[in-house]
C-alpha cells in the first residue's frame, strides 16, 4: 500500500516536473508582459529537437563519452532554446508592442508563431519520429517494491533546483526586481530608468531556457520526438500555470506538479483515455472556486 503511494508520488513528481518547468516559462512572460505566449509549448518541442541534434553531434561526430556529452548538451541546449525564444520576441512580439496593438493580437501572433515552429519542423525534418540517443545508462532501483530509475530522480531534483535558482533570480536580484516592477506598472518603470526591452529579453531567456531544460529531460525520459509533442503538453502546462495563479512562479511550479499528480492518479484508477477528461474537469472545478488560481491575488475593482 505504502509502496504504491510512494510509487505514484514519484511518477507524479517526475511527470509534473515537465509541466512545472514549462509553466514557469508561461508565467514569467505573463507576469512581465501579461502576454500568453502560446508559442511556448512549441519552444519546448524545439528545445527537445535541439537537444537531439546537439547530443547526436557530441556522441557521433565528436565521439565524446556519454557523461561529457550530457554535461555539454544541457547548457548548450538551454542557450540555443533561449535564442529561439528571444528571436520570437524580437521578430514578432516587440514590433506589435511598440505599436501598442491590442494584447489579443499579440496572443494571436504567438499562436501563429507556434504553428510555424511546428510545421516548419515537420516540413524540414519530415513526419518520421526521431529517436533520442541514450547518453547515460539508466539504472533501475527497487526499494521495498518501489521501482524507479536514477533518471527519474534526476529529473525531479533538477526541476526543483531550477525552480529555486529561478526563484532566487526573481526575488533577490536587480533584474528580478525590475521584472516584478514591470508586472506592477508598465508605465512607471521606463520612467525610473529601467531598460524595459532588456528586462523583457531576459525574461524570455529565462523562460525559454526552462523550456529547453524540460525538452532535454523529456527527450531523455521518453526518447521519441515528434513535431506536435509540444502542443498538447504546452496547453496543459499553461492551464497548470493558471491554476497556480498566473504571474506567480510558485503558483506555476505547484500547478505543474498538481496537474502531474492529477493525471497520474487518473491513470492509476481509470482507463488512460479518461486522463484528459478528468484532469481538465478537476482544473475547471478549481478555477470555478478560486477564479484567480491558487496563488493569484484577486484584482479589486476600484470605482
Amino acid at each position: 500500500m505504502l509502496a504504491t503511494i510512494i510509487q505514484n508520488l514519484i511518477n507524479a513528481l517526475q511527470w509534473g516536473s515537465f509541466y512545472a518547468l514549462i509553466a514557469l516559462g508561461y508565467t514569467l512572460v505573463y507576469g512581465v508582459l501579461t502576454l500568453i505566449n502560446f508559442a511556448h509549448g512549441d519552444i519546448f518541442m524545439v528545445g527537445a529537437y535541439i537537444a537531439f541534434f546537439v547530443a547526436t553531434f557530441f556522441l557521433t561526430t565528436a565521439e565524446l563519452p556519454g557523461w561529457a556529452a550530457l554535461a555539454l548538451t544541457i547548457p548548450l541546449t538551454m542557450i540555443l532554446t533561449s535564442m529561439v525564444g528571444v528571436a520570437l520576441e524580437r521578430v514578432a512580439y516587440r514590433p506589435l508592442r511598440r505599436k501598442g496593438a491590442n494584447r489579443l493580437y499579440v496572443v494571436i501572433t504567438a499562436l501563429m508563431c507556434g504553428l510555424i515552429l511546428e510545421n516548419a519542423n515537420l516540413a524540414l525534418l519530415g513526419a518520421s519520429r526521431k529517436a533520442f540517443p541514450p547518453m547515460i545508462t539508466e539504472h533501475v532501483y527497487n526499494i521495498g517494491g518501489v521501482i524507479f530509475t536514477d533518471l527519474k530522480i534526476a529529473v525531479i531534483v533538477t526541476t526543483i533546483l531550477a525552480f529555486f535558482v529561478l526563484h532566487k533570480i526573481v526575488t533577490k536580484t536587480r533584474v528580478g526586481m525590475a521584472m516584478r516592477a514591470i508586472s506592477y506598472d508598465k508605465f512607471a518603470v521606463p520612467l525610473m530608468g529601467i531598460p524595459m526591452d532588456n528586462i523583457i529579453v531576459i525574461t524570455f531567456v529565462l523562460g525559454s531556457g526552462m523550456a529547453g531544460l524540460a525538452g532535454i529531460m523529456f527527450a531523455m525520459s521518453y526518447p521519441i520526438l515528434e513535431p506536435y509533442m509540444g502542443a498538447l503538453i504546452g496547453w496543459k502546462a499553461f492551464i497548470a500555470a493558471v491554476v497556480g495563479g498566473i504571474g506567480d512562479i510558485r503558483g506555476a511550479f505547484l500547478g505543474g506538479f498538481l496537474l502531474g499528480a492529477v493525471e497520474i492518479l487518473v491513470v492509476a484508477f481509470f482507463p488512460s483515455t479518461f486522463r484528459d477528461l478528468i484532469a481538465f474537469t478537476v482544473l475547471l472545478v478549481i478555477l470555478a472556486f478560486r477564479p484567480t488560481g491558487l496563488f493569484g491575488v484577486a484584482k479589486t475593482t476600484k470605482i
Partner: peptide
C-alpha cells in the same frame, strides 16, 4: 466571476473536456 485570461483557460479546458468526453 472571472474574465480575461482566466476565462480563456476555462474555454480551452471546456474544448478539451468536450473532445475527450
Amino acid at each position: 466571476k472571472t474574465r480575461g485570461d482566466y476565462l480563456a483557460i476555462i474555454t480551452i479546458a471546456a474544448n478539451y473536456i468536450v473532445i475527450s468526453a
